[in-house]
Simulated assay, not measured.
Amino acid sequence: MMWVGVLILVLLAFLAFSAFVAYKMITPPRLVGDWTPKDIGFDYEEVTFETEDGLRLSGWWVDNRSDKTVLPLHGYTASRWERLYMRPTIEFLLREGYNVLAFDFRAHGKSGGRYTTVGDRELLDLRAAVNWLRKNHPQSAEKIGLVGFSMGGIVTIRALAEVGEICCGVADSPPMYIDRTGARGLRYFAKLPEWLYHFVKPFIKLFSGGKEVHPIEYSDRVRKPLLLIAGENDPLVKVEEVKKFYERNKRINPSVELWVTDAPHVRTLKFHPEEWKGKVREFLGKWMG
């Protein structure tokens, strides 16, 4: 019967490893940088606000003397300091004349929270930001738009369906099936087999208390202007998945657009900066006035 004992030990070790992987996935390293909007020529204010579940979030408020504000939403493992897409997006939006409220999602950057839920409770974070804006700068909240990347794209899509104050949104590289993207992420980032995600997922839910959010399920709910950006070389989000959302959503939403590029995940702004800016400029200008 020794083999039974060995088998039990192997099983326990496998479960322990799965739990470890889950813990690492929901506690991303915190990215805190050394640049601020002042470095790109804009005065700013350090702000904090509290979510309805009691977390204190940290961000920047840049008042550009407009009645229109755009919130750039970062992706998983990033923060407002992220240089690949957040810094150029913040600079772009400010030079276009919008106010900017940039903040760190829970468990990222300088915000509170121990665990990320990758699009579930992050909607509470966005609600808190919008409430802070409307309370403290109502004159700047006549129109509120979003530009979200990856996880931020998930929140953007959800917000268009669930947050009344949001008028339009750009979702760059938004996962449509969080379990599929999570499994691909194991292979892409950790060189682990995708099938391991099926064993990791229960521990993710147990530790974080969050639920899986599949934006594809919102394709029948979003009726506000939405620009989807997808990359053919994205190892985490398949173009076909974003196209499926688009095809379903356009049946009820004449204001949805899809732009497919040849870029990897959240890299369209890097590889095609002028085209990205042109598309987003036209979209925001049309729907925010």
Rank of each mutant, 00 (worst) to 15 (best):
L196N: 01
R267T: 06
L57W: 03
W132Y: 09
R87S: 09
L228P: 08
S66G: 02
P225D: 13
K68V: 12
S208A: 11
Y115W: 15
R95F: 11
I216K: 05
D67T: 15
D220Y: 02
T261D: 13
A263D: 08
W35D: 07
A22M: 02
I229S: 00
E50K: 15
V130C: 06
S208Y: 12
T116A: 14
W132E: 10
E52W: 09
L93F: 09
D43C: 04
P225K: 13
L160W: 08
K277H: 05
R106W: 02
M1N: 09
L284T: 04
E241T: 01
W3M: 13
P215R: 02
F42Q: 11
A171L: 06
S66Y: 02
L269W: 00
T156P: 07
K135H: 10
K224D: 04
F149V: 01
P235E: 02
L94W: 11
I90E: 11
W195F: 13
G148Q: 09
D39T: 12
L160D: 09
E232I: 03
A129H: 01
K243W: 05
M176Y: 00
E52R: 15
V242A: 00
V47Y: 02
R56Y: 05
C168L: 04
P202S: 07
N99C: 08
I166F: 12
S208P: 10
K143G: 02
V170I: 08
E142L: 13
D104N: 09
P72C: 10
T268S: 09
V266N: 10
F20K: 14
R180C: 03
M151S: 01
E241L: 00
I40G: 06
E165H: 12
R65T: 14
I154D: 04
R95G: 07
S173L: 03
D125T: 13
E46S: 13
R95H: 15
K191G: 10
V239T: 13
V100L: 06
L192V: 03
I216G: 03
T181K: 02
S58L: 01
R180E: 14
R95S: 11
T181F: 01
E165N: 12
V47A: 01
S219T: 05
F14W: 09
I178P: 00
F20L: 15
G169C: 00
S150E: 06
V62I: 14
F245V: 03
C168I: 03
G113T: 14
E122T: 06
L123W: 10
I204W: 06
M2R: 15
V118W: 05
